[in-house]
Design a protein around this nucleic acid. Structure first.
Lengths: 347, 347
DNA sequence: TTGAAAGCGCTAACAC
DNA sequence: GTGTTAGCGCTTTCAA
């Protein structure tokens, strides 16, 4: 009895022997190459089934000089966000069906050192490609390293003007829509809690708001208070507390994401300021937290899951050598009106 | 000019040539084997530095029959929870420093099919080991598959009585503590929103509550309403709505996790029932949402990050062949008292 | 303490 | 359509 073979996975050689064909032929079948006769195909497939053959990724990787690994690169700071988990699910969905495994690589975003640490990851792990989210996706030096090493990647960000291989919504336009909705309700005194300054999407949202206000003829100096946030609930709390000490309560607060908006609502509650009758509060993203606040948040829905799925598709295409013609894709967003916004009091 | 070598990573052969030693010697240095003289060590290390050598994982994996991959296996349903992201961060922290890459593999938990889909992952991807969270960790057939294939793993769950390689808190005791705290405040009319029934930790929490009430001499029939939840905010909403239609408002609601507790608070708000003066609400886990609700949640803090880190340590030890003597570890939890609980009205 | 040689399981170039 | 032949870069006996 050759007990040695028990539980030892079958190799491509075993399959070839079993099917009475060459290794190369099995390889052709496994890789779905076209030039195989039906008869051979059947023989091989039967052998594969009966031996329960699964290709060995290490061997494949070694011979083909690839790893079949795709890394999701993101800021550790955002590890707990629904944005990140949505990206993970979307990317996984496509990658697994395309034969890639997905590695996660949270990295503490620090403009100066991020590219060095990325380089280490690339050299050590050698993923075939990466999906990158902001703010890492928005750092120049990150792009440099990637291009130097020739590793393909796709970013989930509107990107800068030079941007290539970016998937996003039109953040500026979306913010403009949101602001126009508030203007239409009659609001004219705004505060905006802006996000991480290195985050291009966040700046775009701020721009959109300003654009809408200017278009409505409202001078920004008198009608818009701007407070810095850092994308987190806690930073939304701090920003709102600062706003309250400034003494000039606006009739509407727009936070550049839902976490910060939730933080704002939290503070307003503490101060017995009613949302929305005293102040309307709007967020951005339609994260789960937008439905957990009381009242629930008016916000912009961003199809993160689909965007991530699409980014993965794009990346896999690239890896297959089919450089896609369109390397910058915009998804459409949607204004979700909930209970945190209404017409201002006086009206 | 041999432009071919540009950007081509150095191999172990290059290093050996450069250092004037054999491949085997370089290998010994890389793998930190003890029997290398100081002189050789220095020579080799210099060569490694100057060539910027990084071992090729595919080649290593092929030769050594391992993949240097560790999979985190969890329920897709919980992909968006802070629990899952904490597990990811904790596991990554240890694995990366131990030379492993971390793969995420959310799987739709379904008792009947989960083991088959796990088997596919194991055969296709061949990770060296897995970290598994509930409810997947609590399914018998999952353990069977893993043992049959001989893949090492560690679970983040209290596990059943037969449990081996489990890392958790003492959920029963923690729930008991929480309930005793409420009893001490004077509560006697309770409702418990229980979690996913396949989730062993959730059942343990329910048991702990009952134990505390029994010890206080309260007959469960009259003093405890039990409503089924499914661990999500939404299920907490539904459970609480059901509770309200039953007409018997308790003075304290214990939800078996924070998401469901947040759902409960949300519904009570809608019905103008004040928390905590009308009803105290407590959660479990100290997830971020516990600080986002208004009022903030009294809850049990579970050190998920550390537990995951430790689980990864245990797994890596196992992979190194150092079977640890202690294969079941309990972390301690902590009662966090916030504003969602107080003495019942009458008192 | 060090080296030589034989693969690990697969792909890729080139033949037939 | 199918087969043959070299490796990919590492680990692992086994010798020295």
């Amino acid at each position: 009895m050759n007990r040695n073979n028990i539980n030892k996975p079958a190799t491509i050689t075993d399959v070839a022997r079993h099917a009475g064909v060459s290794i190369k032929t099995v390889s052709r079948v496994v890789n779905k190459e076209p030039n195989v006769s039906q008869a051979t195909l059947d023989k091989v497939q039967t052998a594969i089934e009966s031996l329960n053959y699964r290709p060995n990724m290490s061997a494949r990787g070694l011979a083909a000089q690839r790893s079949f690994l795709i890394t999701i690169l993101y800021d550790t700071y955002l590890a707990h966000s629904s944005y990140t988990s949505n990206v993970q699910l979307g990317v996984l969905k496509h990658c697994n069906q395309a034969g890639y495994e997905v590695l996660i690589h949270p990295i503490e975003y620090d403009k100066a050192t991020v590219s060095k640490r990325l380089e280490q990851h690339l050299k050590r792990t050698r993923p075939d490609g990466l999906i990158i989210t902001p703010p890492v996706a928005d750092a120049q030096n990150v792009h440099q390293v990637l291009n130097e090493l020739g590793t393909p990647y796709v970013c989930l960000s509107p990107g800068g003007p030079q941007a290539d291989n970016f998937v996003s919504i039109d953040d500026e336009k979306a913010a403009q829509d949101l602001c126009e909705y508030l203007l239409a309700l009659g609001h004219s005194q705004f505060a905006v809690i802006v996000g991480h300054p290195d985050h291009i999407a966040m700046s775009a949202r701020e721009k959109g708001i300003k654009k809408a206000m200017r278009a409505a003829g409202l001078p920004l100096g008198k009608h818009l208070q701007k407070i810095q946030g850092k994308n987190t609930f806690h930073s939304g709390v701090e920003a709102t507390e600062k706003l309250l000490t400034q003494g000039n309560l606006p009739t509407a607060i727009i936070a550049c994401n839902d976490e910060m908006a939730a933080g704002a609502i939290h503070v307003l509650h503490q101060h017995n300021i009613d949302v929305p009758s005293d102040v309307s509060v709007c967020g951005f993203d339609d994260a789960p937290i937008a439905e957990h606040t009381w009242p629930q948040l008016t916000t912009i829905r961003q199809p993160v899951h689909q965007m991530a799925f699409h980014a993965a598709e794009l990346l896999v295409e690239k890896l297959a050598g089919n450089a896609s013609p369109k390397s910058r894709i915009e998804f459409s967003s949607e204004l979700i009106i909930r209970a945190s916004s209404c017409a201002p009091k006086g009206l």
